[in-house]
Design a binder for these strands. Structure first.
Lengths: 370, 370
DNA sequence: TTGAAAGCGCTAACAG
DNA sequence: CTGTTAGCGCTTTCAA
């Protein structure tokens, strides 16, 4: 049988190429061709230093000319290492995750890992299913904006390597984009521009960042004697922003801070449609600085979040977990990434006409929306 | 040894939970607990119809309470099926691919497949490496805007399942976004608006779509007696668009058609900075209708491409290859997706002042750019 | 430094 | 319908 392979190959390819045409060569084919044991070929690839340089050289070159490539699956079975990472996002549709994916993919690629991408469609159910299906197929997970409960997250952490993004669940290591400082800057920016009454368009109820942002906003409001009204929770989408814009007008504020840029873009769209001038009548501050925030109209003042860095950090943190730690190991230092305010054209001094006056100005359109 | 596991489990967990704490249960643990052969447990999961409903029921419920999940790697080794697909894109950074990824992910998820995502960084080298590394770890590949040569693509196709997007390489099955009809519409739209002199900002040299678009443009130009000037090849990025905008002005045209929206957005940005009114002085037509095309300023007239559909189709086509066909099987029908022109605010009637006059108008800024 | 042998966890004939 | 028996292709002791 092995003889047959050999003969065929010799006849077909003088240079000595693939043995049995159609079948991908295995470690044994290479071993046979080299006159060494299979285990030696294995070592030549996975532990090159433990094999004689001369033999290694020969094995490698013969393998190359046979078109041999180690089978990653077969490799993973005994070793338990797949060199693959799972990245779960709640909604690929959201450009925020594009940047996250990008950062994660790059960090993974740099480390020689491959990324498995899954969309959990905003449900903890799907998330659980995917995690279960992928466990064993990946060396670890990055869960971005997970919808799982703290308890479930801890369970998962107990049986596999895990990093969460935008979530703080001890002892699961996490990457947090800290919008607090940025939010504070934003609020003070608005206060300095003379805004006294601000609306906050809230994100999904379960969002850690949303809670923090709202708390910060309230704190600044107290200090600077502003009044902030919370509108939401809202889906983090352009459509929700469009819808919420009417509530903004109704609430008679001179500035809006939104949970994310998608909402802000929706607000901009709707305000423009209603003839409300931004930033003349209303100032808008977004969050994240996603693709598009700089070329929408007007260009958006927003909290620039290091999203790509977050993706990169999450993968790096996950990878660092592989060095010695057991699953469920003692807590690691969380990575906290700062945000900063990027001022563009959607914010300006509050209209000199007070809120009440401007409310009158807009009486027509407002009632029209009813 | 098996007895030990059993005893432990019984002692630790009255309900009969995981055997050896810390070790994930295997098919054998479940089999032992159920008093059946391992192969029966295997069948209960992979071929439920070939096992007695009662036994299956018992196995499934015991497995569930033991927290057993089939190990995907171990499953893949003998079966050769990983239920995983590889998606390779040249540049995750490009939002075009976000939509493609989205469509592919959805189609894959629907079919119960998982997506492995890789960025080839625009190099055929990286692409080859990734393909080699992933071969065997995925059931097939979708290569989007591949940078591989036709020959290499055929080679890959000979040893694994493969679908290309935006590429026509017989006999490799492909999904093509046919911008020809859309481009024709765009050109005629401009012609009807009175534009006589049009610039085309070309994309990467190797792009199949770019070649087709340019040809179509020339054809229409001949028919409608327009003159078109080709600028490029250009990287398909906002930055390249910014840079090319100056060339556009210099070429003294009244309309620009760009290879993609990123270029168009860059042109818009630069033109605005230079005080050239769009669409008053110059009309701009993009291509693809990516996220942002509808809210940039002014909202972009563009060829709406069914990008997400393309991703979905590519995966569906790939999956269809699994039904019976051998790798390297006879050619399949390519999927051709049409584009259509979406008219927004970046196009308008050509300025009544002829090209020459308007060139004079802009003499200052033009020379300033020199 | 190299070889032989025993699996990794599961699937897939083939009997029964 | 279920059990037995071989592997899938590779890694990994353990000896030599």
């Amino acid at each position: 049988m092995p003889t047959r392979d050999r003969d065929r190959a010799q006849r077909a390819e003088p240079a000595g190429d693939s043995p049995d045409p159609g079948r991908t060569p295995t470690i044994h084919d290479v071993a046979a061709r080299c006159g060494v044991a299979a285990s030696t070929v294995s070592r030549a690839f996975s532990r090159p230093e433990r094999v004689n340089p001369a033999t290694r050289q020969r094995i490698l070159s013969i393998a190359a000319q046979m078109g041999y490539h180690p089978n990653p699956i077969a490799r993973a079975l005994p070793s338990g290492r797949t060199r693959t990472l799972g990245l779960l996002v709640p909604d690929i549709t959201n450009p925020f995750f594009l940047d996250l994916i990008r950062g994660a993919e790059r960090a993974a690629a740099t480390a020689g890992y491959t990324l498995v991408l899954a969309d959990t469609e905003e449900t903890s159910q799907q998330e659980t299913t995917v995690v279960d299906r992928l466990t064993g197929a990946v060396d670890g997970f990055v869960l971005a904006s997970s919808r799982l409960s703290d308890a479930r997250l801890r369970e998962v952490y107990a049986k596999t390597r895990l990093v969460v993004v935008n979530r703080r669940v001890r002892p699961v290591p996490g990457v947090l984009i800290d919008s607090a400082t940025g939010t504070r800057q934003a609020a003070e920016h608005l206060a300095s521009l003379g805004h006294r009454r601000i609306a906050y368009l809230a994100g999904p109820r379960a969002s850690w960042s949303d809670a923090r942002r709202w708390r910060t906003l309230q704190a600044v409001a107290r200090q600077r004697d502003l009044s902030v009204v919370r509108i939401g929770p809202l889906a983090p989408t352009v459509e929700a922003g469009v819808a919420a814009a009417d509530a903004v007008v109704l609430n008679d504020v001179t500035a809006v801070v939104t949970f994310n840029d998608l909402l802000a873009i929706g607000v901009l769209r709707r305000l423009r449609a209603r003839g409300v001038d931004v930033p003349g009548q209303v100032s808008v501050v977004g969050c994240d600085d996603i693709f598009g925030a700089d070329f929408c109209h007007p260009p958006l003042t927003t909290l620039t979040a290091p999203i790509e860095s977050a993706g990169r950090s999450a993968v790096d943190l996950l990878l660092s977990l592989f060095d010695g730690d057991e699953p469920g190991a003692p807590p690691r230092q969380d990575v906290v990434l700062p945000t900063r305010l990027t001022i563009r054209d959607s914010t300006a001094v509050a209209p000199t006409t007070g809120p009440d006056r401007s409310a009158q100005d807009r009486a027509g359109p407002v009632s029209a929306a009813h």
